[in-house]
Amino acid sequence: MKTLYSLLIVIGLFVSCKSSKTVINNSETDTAQKQDTIKISNDDLEYEVIIIESGFDFWMASRAKPRSYYSQSYLETKNSFYVSEWNNRVRSSRFSPNLYETTIDYSQGIDYGLEVNYLLYHYFVFFQEKYKQQLSSHIPRF
């Protein structure tokens, strides 16, 4: 599972890195990075999700439904489909390795908790919107 967190960090860093000719002072960079970093940790479960993605924090605040809107089983089902498709795209040469770098270690039999599933689900939704990707056309609608 720790691979999942590492993957999300690497994806966030890789996708958000772009060449630019604009000079930004360190305090602006620190502020922007703090605003685009979401961290959920649970010491009891020993799982941690850190997503560093430009615009994700704003998207979560403005577009995501509240945590109480979803059941954990709903999020687990969605995440299972998304992770499966994500991992297929990592292994396929048809998809950009810049978007799909590493597989995600997500097992249905493990209880990651509502927070981890909520954050992972919304990252997938955000990713699809931002990069015009459709991770799966056959995800069940509930």
Rank of each mutant, 00 (worst) to 15 (best):
K2D: 13
T3D: 08
T3K: 13
L4Y: 00
Y5P: 00
Y5G: 11
S6P: 01
L7K: 00
I9S: 03
I9T: 09
I9P: 00
I11F: 00
G12C: 07
G12V: 02
G12E: 02
G12S: 07
L13V: 10
L13C: 13
V15I: 15
S16T: 09
S16P: 06
C17V: 07
C17K: 14
K18G: 08
S19R: 14
S20Q: 11
S20W: 08
T22V: 14
V23C: 06
I24P: 00
I24Y: 14
N25I: 10
N26E: 11
N26F: 09
N26V: 10
S27Q: 12
E28Q: 14
E28D: 14
D30G: 03
T31G: 05
Q33S: 12
Q33K: 12
K34R: 15
K34P: 01
K34C: 09
D36T: 08
I38T: 13
I40N: 05
S41W: 06
N42G: 04
D44F: 10
D44A: 12
L45S: 10
L45Q: 07
Y47F: 15
E48S: 12
I50N: 11
I50W: 05
I52C: 13
I52F: 14
S54P: 01
S54A: 11
G55H: 04
G55P: 02
F56E: 03
D57S: 15
W59T: 02
A61E: 12
R63E: 14
A64T: 03
K65F: 14
P66I: 06
R67G: 02
S71Y: 05
Q72V: 13
S73L: 09
S73P: 00
S73N: 10
T77P: 03
T77K: 09
N79H: 05
N79D: 10
F81R: 04
F81I: 08
V83M: 01
S84F: 04
S84Y: 07
E85Y: 06
E85T: 05
W86G: 00
N87T: 04
N87Y: 04
N87Q: 08
R89V: 03
R89A: 05
R89T: 03
R91H: 11
R91Y: 07
R91C: 07
S92I: 07
S92K: 08
R94I: 08
S96F: 06
P97V: 05
N98S: 12
Y100L: 01
E101N: 11
E101R: 12
T103N: 12
T103V: 12
I104N: 00
S107K: 15
S107E: 11
Q108E: 10
Q108N: 14
G109R: 09
L114Q: 10
L114N: 07
V116K: 00
V116D: 01
N117Y: 02
N117M: 03
Y118I: 04
L119I: 12
L119T: 08
L119S: 00
L119K: 02
L120H: 04
L120E: 00
Y121M: 06
Y123R: 11
F124A: 02
F124S: 01
V125Y: 04
F126T: 03
F126K: 01
F127K: 01
F127C: 05
F127Y: 10
K130A: 06
Y131V: 07
Q133G: 05
S136F: 00
S137P: 02
H138E: 15
H138N: 15
I139C: 13
P140R: 08
P140S: 10
